[in-house]
Design a protein around this nucleic acid. Sequence first.
DNA 1: CCCTGATTCGC
DNA 2: GCGAATCAGG
Length: 192
Amino acid sequence: MSWTDERVELLKKMWGEGQSASQIAKELGGVTRNAVIGKVHRLGLSNRNAGAAPAKAEAKEKPAPKAEAKPKPGPKTEPARPAGAAAPAAAEAKPAAPARKQIIPAGQPLPPQPSANEISPEALAKVNEIEKKAKKLSLMELTERTCKWPVGDPATENFWFCGLPVQQGKPYCEAHVGVAFQPMSSRKDRRR
DNA sequence: CCCTGATTCGC
DNA sequence: GCGAATCAGG
């Protein structure tokens, strides 16, 4: 595969969105993350920060900068370099969820959720919290590293998958891993 | 161990 | 220019 215009464009786009090199590589296909990173650097867009945190002051090194570089030969004042400031990742506009109270209905045919088991109350609270931040992805939007925790009623319109970054290895995000993998305890009364 | 980006350097 | 290998973190 070669770096065609399209591919480079997608690379720029994704990198700008903060996607990781490996994700981009995967998306592009035919290249490794190394290739992506290499390209990113060659394109000179390694800095994902444009005009942010110039705090650091490093003007040292290069004791003999022979030729004098004229940083601003132009007479006009330049705004430094807006570079690819791009969008700072403003969260997607939430489709103003009409039915915001999607509290899980009573023990319905819900997936793994141990319903009101005795999971760490904290864990549950945590889940409720992150579910607000959930990406609310559809089945087809799920990827290798998006939390596949289902939320809502599959038979309803307001059904989606968490979609947050998964915990490495697991199929769920940190919060959901917390409630998904419980050391099955409570139900120890197998009166079979 | 999984991952991340950064750099090097032979091609 | 390209990207595998390697490095340096998390």
